[in-house]
């Protein structure tokens, strides 16, 4: 669309304002990680690096980070498998109730987290509790996977719609087995969609707190729960800022990697 120069400038200004809006609070987090005041008095009256050394020595934070990564990877793996299966079923077959499936997949994330959380919690207690399986890492992964399926499903479905089935039919015509066709034709086609969906699934899981609050067993601390427990303790709150600042910086790595592997599509996957 041919936009007038003022229109372009206006859009550019909006973009700049929007990015400022997004990044000013993050900048504040970064500055506060050096703020000598324990409850972030503003403006900072002295600067210190002691929170950074305290965070470095904080085993609880490191363990929580590992727990979150494990939970995120577990949930993402399940979401990748389930999401892809549903996407294939919906795109390649016509069956009764197909329209309802997209609604069903969406439901866990569309309903408020607190509802999903208490539903899973009470079901877990009454069913799994009787089987002697307490809440812990497994229940966190189950909870997260439930609402992560939708990100993979959406990305894969969109990709399948775009690519059609010609290449797969050609592969079959040339004598490839179903497995070979999947391995050499279908999978490469959907790889970047899987990456995009998986990345979003991981991000959703990684920062989830409400569902986790209800599905985590007492002994398992994910990073958001660790942050929740520590943000409200004055001696620990500045350490939380450090952890958050580190996360922001580290987060560039998976996003950048995904972009490198899959091209610009990946990072921009649909939610």
């Amino acid at each position: 669309m041919t936009l007038s120069a003022p229109a372009r400038w206006a859009l550019r200004a909006v973009m700049a304002l929007g990015l400022t809006f997004i990044y000013v609070p993050l900048l504040l987090v970064l500055i506060n990680s050096f703020n000598g005041d324990r409850t972030f008095a503003w403006p900072p009256h002295d600067l210190t690096t002691r929170w950074w050394s305290a965070a470095w020595a904080n085993e609880g934070a490191r363990e929580a980070l590992l727990t979150s990564i494990r939970a995120g990877l577990g949930a993402t793996a399940i979401a990748l498998v389930l999401g892809t299966m549903i996407a294939f079923a919906v795109q390649r077959f016509a069956f009764f109730g197909r329209d309802t499936i997209s609604l069903l997949v969406l439901l866990p994330i569309a309903l408020p987290g607190i509802v999903t959380g208490i539903a899973l919690d009470s079901a877990w207690r009454s069913v799994m509790g009787d089987l002697g399986i307490g809440k812990g890492m497994f229940s966190i992964i189950v909870g997260h996977a439930t609402f992560c399926v939708v990100t993979v499903y959406n990305n894969v479905l969109a990709r399948l719609r775009r690519t059609g089935t010609n290449l797969e039919e050609a592969s079959a015509d040339l004598g490839a087995s179903g497995f070979q066709t999947f391995r050499y034709v279908t999978f490469p086609l959907i790889r970047s969609a899987l990456l995009a969906g998986g990345l979003l699934a991981f991000a959703l899981s990684f920062d989830e707190i409400i569902v986790t609050t209800f599905t985590a067993g007492p002994g398992v601390t994910t990073l958001p729960i660790w942050i929740f427990n520590n943000l409200f303790r004055p001696n620990q709150a500045p350490v939380v800022n450090v952890v958050a600042a580190v996360l922001i910086v580290l987060s560039v790595i998976p996003v950048w990697l995904a972009q490198r592997i899959a091209g610009p599509q990946a990072g921009a996957g649909r939610t």
Binding site: R38, T39, F40, A41, W42, L231, F232, P234, A237
Partner: peptide, 12 residues
């Protein structure tokens, strides 16, 4: 409900 919140509110 948490003390970081209260300390910060009284300081500000």
């Amino acid at each position: 409900s948490d003390y970081t919140k209260e300390v910060q509110a009284f300081k500000a």
